[in-house]
Design a binder for these strands. Structure first.
Length: 423
RNA sequence: GGAGAGAUGGCCGAGUGGUCGAAGGCGCACGCCUGGAAAGUGUGUAUACGGCAACGUAUCAAGGGUUCGAAUCCCUUUCUCUCCGCCA
């Protein structure tokens, strides 16, 4: 959520900024609603004031043993008026809240204009794209004889599910282990295990609700649970309604979870292989930082994700998302795209975002600023470090040989129980 | 799943219908005291919205209700704790 204060002080700025995302914000209807809110709030508070002061004098009169009946008669009509005003006020407040919850974050000044991923800006490239003296296969072909079974996934669940058997299952686990170890031991993150089902409040806090419910799997329960689309949701909600001690900041969490996405609206996209699944494994990095440190933390967090790709010697590029491609809650996002020989293309393997105070305001996640002595909103950030399923694919495709065997990257050998190649 | 007890400020804890946004304590901040510190002592110490301000309004888990007036009474929900059952 954006700061309501800037809506009151600089509405044109808000409108202009939101238009970068092609989000058209109707200032006229907002202004009208806000004026009505203020009007009715003042009226309601005046009525409340009158009721309070009259009730107080009734109390005083009663204490002195005076006759309170005349006072009661005076106050009789107040109740209905007040109730009416209060009902109207809460209605308008709900409307305002719904409006505010549907407005995306304001973009950082460094975010380039643009409509789609075609307008993203490449920041850097790392690693050499492997040259094969044979036609490289994609992970589906490589996996078909080595325990990667999409038909079985479809039988057990549906399309967009996979079963991994034997060494490939182990390889995915090894990838997760390596990433958790790197982030917790080398990058200073606190390893965290969290619920995979969350409530609606948590999703509202990080911005998935109310706007993006159709992207989620919902569990029929009262009240509803949702399967997490990313560990960002449970982990960031650790600080919901919390005032973090300044001396504990930054808070840095790393968490491995499965992620569940309905992929509604992705029909026909990436139907082949493990690229886009309803269920996938991911190691997520989350940071809770002081506002003035978030830009620097964003660069660092992205580097932490990059270090995993470097350790695995996977070629990748770093991309700054343009205005149109940056997610709803984010003010600035870097994507890391790994080279997939099977596709002959770079594909997203990590997305690192600075949300500034957008999530924090929804979460009421604050810290006590020693300079002001007041609780102030924190800044939140997160990034994949990395998506494990896509890392598995990238290793398979980049480390294949002419026979379709997959060499195990050196960094993963300690986790593979002596296996150095998947035959 | 059954039975019971709870939920109050940064923390502990008092408060069962009326000047209660809430005693007292801890913690914290700033003074005094001291050579310096500890102890002692004084003052202050929630958040949001409206207002230039004085101040007003809301908030005692959440939502509803009773009442002129609710932290306090009633209902519903959530969460925590204890005991029993079940269970990885």
């Amino acid at each position: 959520m954006l700061d309501p204060h800037i809506f009151r002080t600089d509405l044109d700025y808000v409108k202009e900024q939101l238009s970068r995302r092609s989000f058209s914000f109707n200032t006229e209807s907002y202004t009208a609603l806000e004026a009505r809110r203020k009007d009715i709030q003042v009226k309601t508070q005046e009525l409340q004031n009158e009721r309070n002061s009259r009730s107080k004098s009734i109390g005083q009169a009663k204490a002195k043993g005076e006759d309170i009946q005349p006072l009661l008669d005076q106050v009789q009509h107040l109740g209905d008026q007040l109730k009416e005003a209060e009902t109207e006020l809460s209605g308008i407040q709900a409307q305002m809240a719904a409006l505010m919850e549907g407005i995306p974050n304001i973009l950082d000044v460094s975010v380039p204009d643009g409509k789609s991923e075609d307008d993203n800006i490449e920041i850097s490239r790392w690693g050499d794209i492997p040259v094969f003296d044979f036609e490289p296969k994609d992970h589906v072909d490589l996996g078909s004889k080595r325990g990667m079974d999409f038909e079985l996934g479809a039988k057990i669940a549906s399309a967009r599910f996979v079963v991994l058997n034997g060494p490939l299952a182990r390889l995915q686990r090894a990838i997760i282990q390596l990433m958790l170890d790197m982030h917790s031991l080398e990058h200073g993150y606190n390893e965290t295990y969290v619920p995979f089902l969350v409530n609606a409040d948590s999703l509202r806090g990080t911005g998935q609700l109310p706007k993006f419910e159709s992207d989620l799997f919902k569990v029929d329960n009262d009240p509803a649970f949702y399967l997490i689309p990313t560990a960002e949701v449970p982990v960031t909600n650790i600080v919901r309604d919390v005032i973090v001690d300044a001396k504990d900041m930054p808070l840095k969490f790393v968490s491995h979870t499965p992620c569940f996405r309905s992929e509604a609206g992705a029909y026909g996209r990436d139907v082949r292989g493990m690229i886009r699944q309803h269920q996938f494994e991911k190691v997520e990095l989350v940071q809770i930082v002081k506002p003035e440190e978030s830009a620097k933390a964003h660069e660092e967090l992205t580097e932490h994700a990059e270090n995993v790709l470097k350790k695995l010697k996977l070629p990748y590029r770093k991309v700054l998302l343009c205005a149109g491609d940056t997610g709803f809650s984010s003010s600035k996002t870097y994507d890391l795209e790994v080279w997939l020989p099977g596709q002959g293309a770079y594909r997203e393997i990590s997305s690192c975002s600075n949300f500034r105070d957008f999530q924090a305001r929804r979460l009421q996640a604050r810290w006590r600023n020693p300079e002001t002595g007041k609780p102030e909103l924190v800044h939140t950030l997160n990034g994949s470090g990395l998506a494990a399923g896509r890392t598995l694919i990238a290793i398979m495709e980049n480390y294949q040989d002419a026979q379709g065997r997959i060499r195990i990257p050196e960094a993963l050998l300690p986790y593979m129980g002596g296996l150095d190649i998947i035959e």
